[in-house]
Design a protein around this nucleic acid. Structure first.
Lengths: 185, 185
DNA sequence: TTACTATATATGATTTATCCTATATATGAG
DNA sequence: CTCATATATAGGATAAATCATATATAGTAA
């Protein structure tokens, strides 16, 4: 479960609450790992039970009390072991490609519309990539090291090059459709 | 749930058993939708219960009886509606990118090894793409239409361009590491 | 006999994620 | 008052997937 390692990774920078972590995920890694609030809390509870982190309760006056989580040495060792380890098996599924696969049953007009829709979504996603650096928010405090910044940018870069390749693919298909290169029914 | 639509899509070509479908998935769409046998059977049962398909039992002598599933008009309409519909929300997660994100904690040697490992895996995946056409097997009978073939090739093309982009990304990082462009700890 | 293959059909137990709901403190706007 | 925001914490119900197990028919090889 990679969420647990992402959480450990962030706690290795600084102790955080579940609420902090949600904001940090949204600001730094959402482009390749969106984190659900429920899952964050569940994972923190699980990490605590397995003694990879410690929870410190911090009373507040005008707001609910905070539960700040601290990584410990065991957690740190597990994190390092995983980060240094082999690439996790990664077999992503793409539901849009199932649609593409069975597109032959549609009219050429419908297919053209479909690919124009895909291309539009991809452009929006690419535009979102441009905004990621502006949304770091609280995590900006942690990426002060040029080294951390470098690796974070690499994840952005990967998203960008993949999405650009997919957009070029979609645009090329749109051209092929328009120039009548799709075999007829 | 896209598996259900992939199954309906294949049944729209021809009635199949669960066992057939598993082989067909492995031969045609595994590169973007690997299908688990358990899930296939569960999904077929679900589709049957929802009256989108009908099941016909076919006795055999030297082998266990077959359960052949037929799509009906309701199933066909649902399929077409989905295929023509908007792109399903697609937020894939990449566990390897979490490793990349926290790589700064490793030594440069470890990082180099890691990226060389990623690049190797990507090359293997690209090599696998070259083999997909040879593995169509029973599904070859269905893609007789140039149109169906065209859309199937588009899914391969998408996988290829994305994976090539990611490999180029990994190789460029390897070069950057070797030429000392990674900020120090 | 075991181990492997093939043809065929499943189900169990578990995990992760989603989307909903809930609780509490506070503020502001209609 | 309701709805929205913010700070904070959760849990419920459900779905999909994984990996294991199981059943049955058959065959081959060691």
């Amino acid at each position: 479960m990679s969420l647990e390692f992402a959480i450990l990774g962030f706690l290795n920078y600084h102790p955080y609450t579940g609420y902090d972590l949600k904001k940090i995920f949204d600001g730094s890694v959402r482009h390749f790992w969106p984190a659900d609030q429920s899952q964050i809390y569940r994972t923190l509870a699980n990490l605590t039970e397995r003694s990879l982190v410690q929870m410190e309760k911090v009373p507040q006056e005008d707001r609910p009390d905070r539960k700040v989580y601290h990584i410990n040495d065991l957690g740190r060792n597990e994190l390092r072991k995983w980060v240094a380890g082999p690439a996790p098996l990664d077999e992503p599924r793409s539901a849009p490609l199932i649609q593409v696969f069975f597109s032959g049953m549609l009219t050429d007009e419908e297919i053209l519309q479909k690919f124009e829709g895909y291309a539009e979504i991809m452009r929006m996603i690419l535009a979102r990539y441009d905004q990621v650096p502006d949304q770091l928010g609280p995590f900006q405090q942690e990426i002060t090291s040029p080294r951390e910044h470098f690796f974070w940018l690499l994840t952005l870069e990967n998203g960008l090059v993949s999405m650009r390749a997919s957009l070029a693919w979609a645009e090329s298909i749109i051209e092929r459709i328009k120039s009548g290169q799709v075999p007829q029914k």
